[in-house]
Simulated scan of single mutants.
Amino acid sequence: MSELTTVARPYARAAFEFAVDSNKIEAWSAMLSFATEVVNNPTIAAILKGDKAAQELASLFVSICEDQLDENGLNFIKIMAENGRLSVLPRVAELYAELESEHKKVINVDVVSAYALSKKQKIELGLSLEKRLARKVNLNCSIDNALIAGMVITAGDLVIDSSAHGQLTRLSNTLQS
């Protein structure tokens, strides 16, 4: 995965910078999403793994995507095809979405709790996280009974583990050292 990220990051950054400069952030997001769907199509995925020449792949992609992509989007696809990088388009789209969220000062936060959170708890947690992270927060809540009690909050690199399972694990590690 890190190898894909290393290859995809310059493309995502270039696309995002161009989108910001041309004031087309949402349009580029839509174009990359469409191109990702094309890459994820089983037939296209098999063709990408084959031994087709870069020119053939570029013309195939352009013929499929030309109604959904503008001229700059088509040029972007051609460059990726010429460099043999069409298979990393899904990761480019993911990285682009992260850059877009960062630009808009929005962060997706995963909350895994032992029990379902009430609407009031979600609102209070969201407000608290917005204050701590200085960004608008999108909560993605899920339930994991293995936590026993409490919750695990993940926001990018930040992980807050207040679950009983996590506390027991830390206590066990402390006692073993």
Rank of each mutant, 00 (worst) to 15 (best):
A27I: 14
A27W: 09
W28S: 09
A30Q: 08
L32P: 02
T36L: 06
V38E: 08
V38K: 04
V38Y: 06
N41H: 14
P42C: 12
T43P: 00
I44N: 01
A46H: 10
I47Q: 07
I47N: 01
K49W: 06
K49T: 12
D51N: 15
K52Q: 12
Q55E: 15
Q55G: 09
Q55V: 13
Q55F: 08
E56D: 15
E56P: 00
L57C: 04
L57F: 03
L60D: 10
F61G: 07
S63Q: 14
E66K: 15
D70T: 01
D70V: 05
D70Y: 01
E71S: 13
N72T: 13
L74Q: 10
N75F: 02
K78C: 07
I79N: 06
I79H: 08
M80G: 09
A81E: 00
N83C: 02
N83H: 14
R85T: 01
R85P: 03
R85M: 03
L86N: 11
L86H: 09
L86F: 06
V88M: 12
V88Y: 12
L89D: 04
P90C: 13
V92E: 03
V92W: 04
Y96M: 02
Y96E: 01
Y96C: 04
A97W: 02
A97F: 03
A97Y: 03
E98S: 10
E98G: 07
E98I: 08
L99T: 01
L99I: 02
E100K: 15
S101E: 10
S101K: 10
E102C: 08
H103I: 05
K104S: 05
K104R: 15
K104V: 01
K105W: 00
V111Q: 05
V111Y: 09
V111F: 05
Y115H: 12
A116F: 00
A116D: 11
L117D: 07
L117C: 04
L117W: 05
S118G: 12
S118H: 01
K120W: 05
K122E: 15
K122F: 05
E124W: 01
G126F: 00
G126K: 13
G126Y: 00
L127G: 03
L127T: 07
S128K: 14
E130Q: 14
E130V: 09
E130D: 07
K131A: 14
K131F: 02
L133E: 08
L133H: 07
K136V: 10
V137E: 01
L139R: 07
C141A: 13
A146S: 15
L147N: 11
I148D: 02
I148K: 05
I148Y: 07
A149W: 08
M151D: 05
I153N: 04
T154P: 01
T154F: 00
T154A: 13
